[in-house]
Design a protein around this nucleic acid. Structure first.
Lengths: 216, 216
DNA sequence: ATGCACTGGATAGCGCTATTATCCAATGAT
DNA sequence: ATCATTGGATAATAGCGCTATCCAGTGCAT
């Protein structure tokens, strides 16, 4: 049990910001102890860490975080619906760019999902997200065969899901899924860029030029 | 050869926005035909597509795109330096969060890079990016073993690099590297979320509840 | 019980980014 | 000759994530 100032110190989040999160419904209210005093506990601290991770590492907009949290807190939602809602909040919303390109990309997304044997809601915004990327790849003349990526994604996702406590309290499950999706997603992205850097250094930095990483 | 209005129509980017990109140095000036008339060509159209892809798909801030483009246009830069600069602009800048956690995470990043046999500049901001993610994983009690991800990243990055035309014009090489990094990165991320959705549906949607994707 | 730091609550303002709008004088097509 | 368009400059806008200010009520130390 603590007051707002202690919550602020322990979390590293400014008081004004905490108030803002309270207003926005990202952070649940503390226990009203008196008219002008409320008490916060570890659940608030944990929630703040969740928010900051989604915000700073996942770069989710506050509105998306709110959706995730609402899904968590809506007890009437069956778990897999809750996960769906949370999941759909994680991707940036893209609006369709109508045209032949878009149609073709959509078909390709369907085909890819079919090939992998995935089960995906027809309304999943994630489909449009992928379609948009494919459209851009096409426009720029880059190869659009994503099978290799889909397979890597599948392998990683399966391993991650094995670690999710689906039998525990519902809050743990969403948190684990959402945090896993976002944080490991970012880790993967960063690692891929590191691998790129290393590969291009290896292939180019011969020929007498100094190579990054080893200064004379 | 076209005027600004045609460039706008063909690219789908508003005239005012094109002027803005010209001001910001993202888009090179058109050929001055008369005091109040300039001519644009396919290179401008292509550049606009690059900008929009980095902006909308890659979600890079305009300032980062500018850095990328400056690297491309600085002819005096050796190719691998140019790629390094461009690459470092792709990641969001993170500032270190000093403390023991940070130190430990840094050490873990070094170890991971070593294990994979990668060659990475000591100053690469990408290192800090990864360190930050590891710190957050720790704070939230999630496993921090990223070996599996590093290996997947390495495999994908190697395959991508095989497709880069390092022997062609330098502009092609950066464009390919940057676009590849960003667009396939996003594709991978989206696919991983799709795989997650599918996996959690598969594991949870039994038990009489209707499963996403098949409505009665 | 008194003075003072702290609280919740409400509202307003800020700093940044990406974009859009407005004006202008010059100009080229009809 | 005229009228829409252009380049160029400057201002205005919208959204977001905070941050600051003000307020009256309250707990705590003295």
């Amino acid at each position: 049990m603590m007051r707002i100032s202690e919550l602020s110190e322990r979390s590293g989040v400014a008081i004004a910001t905490i108030k803002y999160y309270l207003r926005e419904g990202l952070l649940h209210q503390g226990e009203q102890v008196a008219a002008t005093r409320a008490a916060y506990d570890d659940s608030h601290l944990r929630r703040l860490r969740l928010i900051r991770a989604l915000l700073e590492v996942g770069r989710l907009p506050v509105a998306a975080i709110k959706q995730v949290i609402e899904a968590v807190e809506d007890e009437s939602l069956p778990v897999h619906r809750m996960l769906g809602t949370a999941h759909h909040a994680l991707g940036p919303a893209v609006e369709p760019e109508p045209g032949d390109d878009w149609e073709a990309a959509g078909a390709q997304v369907d085909r890819l999902i079919g090939e992998q044997g995935w089960t995906i809601t027809p309304e999943a915004p994630t489909r449009d997200e992928l379609a948009q990327t494919i459209v851009r790849l096409r426009q720029l003349g880059l190869p659009t065969d994503l099978t290799r990526y889909a397979e890597a994604a599948r392998r990683l996702a399966e391993a991650e899901m094995d670690a999710i406590p689906f039998d525990g309290p519902r809050e743990s499950a969403v948190e684990a899924v959402v945090l896993g999706t976002v944080l490991y997603g970012r880790a993967l992205d960063t690692l891929r860029r590191l691998a790129h850097e290393s590969e291009s250094a290896r292939r180019l930095a011969g020929a007498g030029e100094d190579s990054p990483g080893e200064r004379p």
